[in-house]
Amino acid sequence: MAERKKILLRLDPAVHDALARWAGDELRSTNAQIEFLLRRALADAGRLPGDTAGIPRRGRPRKRIRDDGGGQDGDGASGDGPDGTGPDGTA
Rank of each mutant, 00 (worst) to 15 (best):
G76P: 00
P61R: 07
G70A: 11
A41I: 09
D17Y: 11
G59V: 08
I34T: 06
K5M: 03
D17T: 12
G86Y: 02
R57S: 13
G81Y: 00
D25L: 02
V15N: 15
M1V: 11
T85V: 00
I34F: 06
S78C: 05
G24M: 02
G74E: 06
R64H: 13
G70Q: 00
T85A: 09
S29C: 14
M1Q: 07
R66D: 04
P61Y: 13
E35M: 04
E35W: 02
I34M: 08
T30G: 05
T85Y: 08
D67N: 13
G59D: 09
A18H: 06
R57P: 08
P13L: 15
S29G: 04
K63Q: 09
D68K: 01
N31A: 10
D67I: 01
R4S: 10
G76S: 05
D80H: 00
A2R: 14
Q33P: 00
I34G: 03
L27F: 05
D17Q: 11
P49R: 07
G76Q: 06
A14K: 11
G50F: 03
A91S: 04
G74N: 08
G84V: 11
D75I: 00
T85Q: 12
G74F: 05
V15G: 10
I34C: 01
D44N: 15
T85G: 07
P61A: 07
R28A: 00
S29A: 12
A91M: 03
T30W: 12
L11Q: 07
D83P: 05
I65L: 02
W22Q: 08
L27K: 11
G59K: 05
T85R: 15
T52D: 06
G89Y: 12
E26M: 06
G24C: 01
P49M: 08
D67C: 04
Q33D: 07
H16S: 12
I55C: 00
P82A: 15
D75E: 15
D25A: 14
A43I: 08
R39S: 08
A43N: 03
G86M: 14
T85C: 09
L48A: 06
S29K: 15
A41K: 15
R62D: 14
W22L: 14
R39K: 13
P49I: 04
E3G: 12
I65H: 13
G84Y: 01
A41G: 09
G59P: 11
L42T: 11
A14Q: 06
D80C: 01
L11Y: 06
A77H: 01
K6W: 09
L42K: 09
D88P: 12
K63D: 12
